[in-house]
């Protein structure tokens, strides 16, 4: 599976990563090489094999829907790049 520069630009957009146009060739070559490695999987017959999502095949634990952690908003917001009045600040989204 070879990826071209347009594929890489699309993937980078989905992943919200800025990629400079001059780096696209490099990324498409590297990602293609990794996908060539991954391609070995296609030779394996997996008809009827159940996908394995958890090594120990256990189900997700449930707990009562009650808040049990203290509210530590001030502590957590102290490490934010930009806040004001307890809110996170980002560039204007709606004009």
């Amino acid at each position: 599976m070879a990826l071209d520069n347009k594929d890489v630009a699309d993937i980078a957009h989905l992943a919200r990563l800025a990629v400079e146009p001059q780096d696209l060739d490099h990324y498409s070559a590297e990602l293609t090489r990794i996908l060539d490695l991954v391609e070995q999987m296609s030779a394996v017959d997996t008809a009827g094999v159940e996908p394995m999502a958890h090594p120990l095949h256990v189900a997700q634990r449930l707990r009562p829907d009650q808040a049990d952690e203290p509210n530590r908003r001030e502590r957590f917001q102290r490490i934010a790049p930009l806040t004001e009045d307890g809110l996170y600040l980002v560039p204007k989204v709606i004009e």
Binding site: I11, A15, L17, Y27
Partner: peptide, 27 residues
Amino acid sequence: RRIMIGTYALSAGYYDAYYLKAQQIRH
């Protein structure tokens, strides 16, 4: 690189060929 490979493998139309297949071989 890994974020982009993962994003690609999980993107619409490729999930079965990559992630699901990998989970089956994992089994």
